[in-house]
Design a protein around this nucleic acid. Sequence first.
DNA 1: CTGCACCCCTGTAGGC
DNA 2: TGCCTACAGGGGTGCA
Length: 282
Amino acid sequence: MPELPEVETVRRGLREWAVGRRLSGVDVHHPRAVRRHAAGPEDFAAALVGRTFTEVRRRGKYLWLPLDSGDAMIGHLGMSGQFRVLPEEAPDGPHLRVRFRFAEGPQLRFLDQRTFGGLAVSRGGADLPAEIAHIAPDPFEPGFDADRCVAALRRRRTEVKRALLDQTVVSGVGNIYADEALWRAGLHGARPADALTGPAAHRLLGHVVDVLGEAIAQGGTSFDALYVDVNGESGYFDRALHVYGREGAPCDRCGASIRRESFMNRSSFSCPRCQPRPRGRG
DNA sequence: CTGCACCCCTGTAGGC
DNA sequence: TGCCTACAGGGGTGCA
């Protein structure tokens, strides 16, 4: 479940099901799932067994679970990663990558169809793992500074959608929520970020925060079974999407037919009337 | 600093 | 039925 609202949904599930439980065994079923753990799968497991998850934290799309050792397990879901809480007798399935066993109670499993996601143990990373420090704060962190974020956004000499997707400007925004925020702001994603006025950039960031917050409240966006919470349940925010995946459907604001454009080798959805394409530099 | 090409993978949908 | 391509919510790297 890739973007911030989906990762936050997973974080909440992990907080409920993983915190305070002592690990009795960790089985790496696919080494690629721990490729970012340089010391290898055995070291990964050894750093976890016997330890207890004390908390579940998140920055943007990254999760980390501090341990009572002072280390932390880092997780990124990539495109198709899932954490699932399942009883021991549940079948493994084809996408099981890492199994976490506890002294008692259900297992925690990391599943990942495409294996773009991954786990690692960060030594001494309980507070903020060094591996995540290059990512900007996300809008829901106490340390988030909106003025600073807007300044970073307007400093980028690139298109505004690219800037929104840049995790060093603001973390947690992906393709869906970038398109939704741009629609709400009435801006085409190809507008130059450095041509936005301060108030316009603040308004855009406000829409980013709004759409992410509303999506969290709905448990995220689930188009299919790949994007589910730790109990396998889907979120409902897909019903509230205004542009993403709605090519040809009428704009909820003006009725014009939603268009789809190729951008950064991905699809971008927008309203041709509410979000006119910029001409030249702006 | 920036854009760009390309890499990492599996699975599905659609055209032929 | 098969075969092919395009596409999917992620990030990272190397190069110009």
